[in-house]
Each structure stands twice: as C-alpha cells, then as structure tokens.
Amino acid sequence: MKKTSSNSASMSIEDEIFFEKHLQHESSLSELYQDIESPTPSDTLDQSILSIARKASRKPLKQSTHWWQQPASWAASVAVFSLAALLSHQIWLTEQNISEQDFAPKEAIEAKQNIEPLSSPSDSIVPNHAKEKMHRRLSDKNDSRKLLFKSEPAPIIPAAQEHTLRSPLKTLSIEADQTHTQKSGMDEAEMDSEMDSIEITIQALPLREETVLTEKKEQDVRGHSSKANYSKAQSLHLDKIQLLIEQGKIDEAKELIQQFKIKYPEISVSPVILQHLSPY
C-alpha cells in the first residue's frame, strides 16, 4: 500500500485529547461507531465453513511429517530389523552344521552306501555287472591315492635325501630284489631275471603313495647293506678261484673266472691270478 498524503494540518490540543480518549474507546466517535450495526456473513456461508472444518477435523492432522519421529513406528521398525537379523543368524548356524546326508537325495545316499561294500567284494549284494562298473569307476576316477593325499598333508621330505625322489616303483623293485635275495639265496643271474618279472608285476599294482613313501625310507637303509653284500660276493668268488689255483685245479679255476667276468664285467681280475692260469 502506498502512503497517502496525510493531512498537513497540525494536531491541536483538542485533537490530542480527543485521540487519547479514542484510544481508550471512550470518545463520542468510538461510541457512535460501536452503535453502527455490523454486517455479518450469511448463514449459508457460516454452514459451509463449519462443515469444511468438521470434515477436516475427522482426518488425523499431521503432527509430524517424518515417520521416524513417531515413537511407535520407530520401535516397530527396530523390532522387525532385530528379528530379521536373529533369524538370518540362526539360518547361518544351521547351514554350518548341516551334513551331506541332510540335503542330498535319497538315491545318492543309497548309491554311496552301495559303493562302499564294493571295496570288499565278498560281502556285496550288488549284481556282478554293477560291481564291475562301480569298481571301474573307483579305480579310474576316485583314485584312492589322490584322496589320501588330499585329506592328509604330504610328509616333509628333506632335500638332501636325493634317493627318495626316485620313482616309487623303482625303489620298490630294489626292495623286492633284496628281500628276494636274502630269503631264497638264489644266484645273481636268476635274481636278475626274477627281478624283471617282479618289477613288471609291481608296476601293474596300484600302490598307495603313503606306503610307497614309507617303503622308500626302508630301502634307504637296505640299499647300503645290499652294496656290502655285493662286494662280499665278489671277494668270495675271487677267494674261491684263488683256492682252486692253489689246489692245482686250473680248469675249474678258469671256469670260475669266466663266470666272474660275466657276472662282474666292471671288475677287473687280479693279474696275479691270471698269471697262474696263463699257459705261458
């Protein structure tokens, strides 16, 4: 609103007194104005306003625009979240304790139970063709050596023991050689031939890596003793030749020398012995 040009006439004392009375609603002007009949709104206008007010009061007036400021909803949301967290924790715990049998289908469990007796075929009820099939599967795919190696950590092998790094089949053949020699007391040539056959049969056998490794250790001990026996046999052989020469049995001594050369080609015969056998 713009300011109007006010009356420039200065206020007289009478005007001031009149104004002071008017401020107290005691002036004749005030009385006259109060007597004037005031206009009032129509009844329809009153009813329309009041009906709107009644309708508005039925609706819950928003005390707060933010849901989280209301304590009830806050408490409810906290309860829901804590319940969800508890349930998820329990589910996690049960999942941790669950075994293969709890979730695997029945057929798979039964099949597994049927496979296990196949390792001892004598007490199996499964038909023969099924047995063979399962046995083939076991030998091909489920290699017991690998399973054992996975389930148990491999033994620590010292780097200095070079012989332990050899092929398990080879070491096993050495071991078989020595045991065979000790037990039967056969000739060296026979022993060699038998060694080959034993080695072939051993190669066909599926061996557990664990047993192979333990056998390696045993062979390390036995290897030293076999070398000693080998040199002992040489000296015995040579002593026998020496004895036959001394007894004058030259022909027999020659035969033994021939055998010695064949058996131990890498060892040279002493020239003293050869001098006795020479015709010149």
Binding site: N7, A9, D15, F18, F19, L23, L29, L32
Partner: peptide, 21 residues
C-alpha cells in the same frame, strides 16, 4: 499510532457538528 491519529482527526472533522469531545 500516527495513522490512527490522523484517521480519528479526519473523522472528527467530518462529524464536527455531531460529535462532542
């Protein structure tokens, strides 16, 4: 207050013959 004072003064002068002090 000034506005009211001027308003009262004008009205008083309008109704000078009717209104008493």
């Amino acid at each position: 207050k000034s506005r009211l004072r001027y308003a009262v003064k004008k009205l008083r002068h309008h109704m000078k013959l009717v209104l008493t002090l």
